[in-house]
Simulated assay, not measured.
Amino acid sequence: MLDLTKIAKQIPGISQHLRVEAAATRQRLELAQKLLIQAKSQQEEIVNRQQQWRDRITFAAATPIEPLDTAIEISTPPEGHTVFATDGSQLSPSHHEIAYCYLINVGRVMLHYGQSLYPLLDSLPEVFYRPEDLYVSRQWGIRTEEWMGYRRTVSEASTLAEMACRWVNPPGAHFDIPNLAMVDGSLIYWFLESLPAEARDRILPPILEAWEQLRSVNVPLLGYLSASRSTEAVNFLRLQACPHETPNCISNCASLTDKLPCQVIDPLRDAALWTNFLQPGQRSSLFRSSARILESYQAHRVYFCYVNVGTEIARTEVPEWVALNPSLLDQALSLMLAQVHKGYGYPVALAEAHNQAVVRGGDRTRFFALLEQQMIRVGLKNVGISYKEARKRGSIA
């Protein structure tokens, strides 16, 4: 039980720290705006230096493919359109439960606007209990709980593509309605960088295959990041702030143990910088991410931009085939913005996909009760949770 009277004594220190940090952030923001204006005047030259020295730069800096001060008004979405979304949740395996297994539940949402059609809101659960599902990741030193999260990412992508392709291109029918496939979070799977090649080959290829299916039916894919903590775009300004003739981090700054000379605006985030540049309904310059894992994405390399959705500066990510198609990019952003407005600050399709996917406490109890009944029915004995788990579920206090 949390003792709020003891917590209350620590609150003044937190508020004082936040006040000081807010003042420091304003100073960083002013400096970042000056650096952006300077970088815009020689943007092409900086991009060339970035590409030339990319193997010697030790931080991830995205590459702008439009002028840095771009602020484009997003068009109004058409009345008739369809939005697809998926999200996932899971039950982790536990040795204290009646059976060692885990469950992945993927929420599916398909919302139609201006078409007089019923929506789709449901979920697809799958239980994993075989040894090859539970222990395969241990050969790479990956815990089952982590591997379960990676498998969930694959299920979300595959389910999204299957749902969208089945609707957009059913046998004997053709639809000419603008649509959008959305996921909650980044399309850049940073966790893949640390995985062994064999493990990565079980995760990334099925995701890219799902994206290719969306591409084949011309359904744009968009990842929506609320309250993004990314600094990829701000890091491009570090190239402008670099005091050396070339951005050779390894040679110029390898011996430094303190803050690097180009980190004059750290830890300013991208979303904070674009707050003063974008009006509601506008998007920023389009950036190409420089994350190294994207070298394995082939034709699906990720681009991103920031959008003032009215309630916040959101980061939106799209594959290359969407980013380089102006009409498809505009379609994706306009439908995304409409979703945010319908959801009062957050895309309604993503919120509903989450609600369909989430496994609540009552769902967990009913799942294991159903499993227990089945185990008893087939003649298994001594079925039950551990004494530790049983004791933790009650209190004598």
Rank of each mutant, 00 (worst) to 15 (best):
A227P: 03
A338H: 06
A332W: 00
R202T: 11
V83S: 05
P261Q: 06
L2P: 09
I37A: 15
W211K: 03
H96K: 13
T82N: 02
E126A: 14
I396H: 15
L286K: 01
L18T: 03
N48E: 15
V183W: 02
T86V: 10
Q213G: 11
R238S: 10
F175P: 05
A61L: 05
E132F: 07
N308T: 00
I72V: 13
E352H: 08
P67K: 08
E198D: 10
H354S: 07
L335M: 05
E209R: 08
Q374P: 03
D201T: 09
V136H: 14
H341W: 14
R215Y: 08
R269D: 12
P261T: 04
L278S: 05
A60L: 11
Q139K: 07
A157F: 00
P261Y: 03
P78H: 07
G379H: 03
Q356W: 01
R19E: 15
A351T: 09
S290T: 12
D363G: 08
V348N: 11
T275Q: 14
Q10D: 13
C249H: 03
G362Q: 03
R288I: 11
F128H: 10
I396G: 08
R138M: 04
Q52P: 09
Q115D: 09
W147E: 00
S194K: 13
E193Y: 13
G394Q: 14
Q33L: 13
E79L: 12
N252L: 05
V136P: 08
S186Y: 13
R26W: 03
L103K: 04
S226I: 09
L4A: 13
R391D: 09
V383P: 03
Y189V: 03
W211I: 07
F128W: 02
L195D: 01
S89M: 07
T82V: 13
I142M: 04
V383E: 09
L31S: 06
R152F: 02
W211T: 02
T257V: 11
I7P: 08
G88A: 04
Y224T: 04
F128G: 04
L204Q: 00
P205F: 11
N48S: 15
P347L: 01
Q331C: 09
E232S: 07
L180V: 10
D87Y: 00
L273S: 00
D87I: 01
Q298K: 14
R130A: 15
G384Y: 08
A181Q: 05
F191M: 09
P78S: 04
E193D: 15
A23S: 14
E97M: 12
K34C: 07
L222H: 04
P77F: 06
Q339K: 02
E126V: 07
R56H: 14
I11H: 01
A233D: 13
L294C: 06
L35V: 07
L225F: 07
W190D: 13
A62F: 14
A71I: 12
K392M: 14
I207L: 07
P119K: 00
K392D: 10
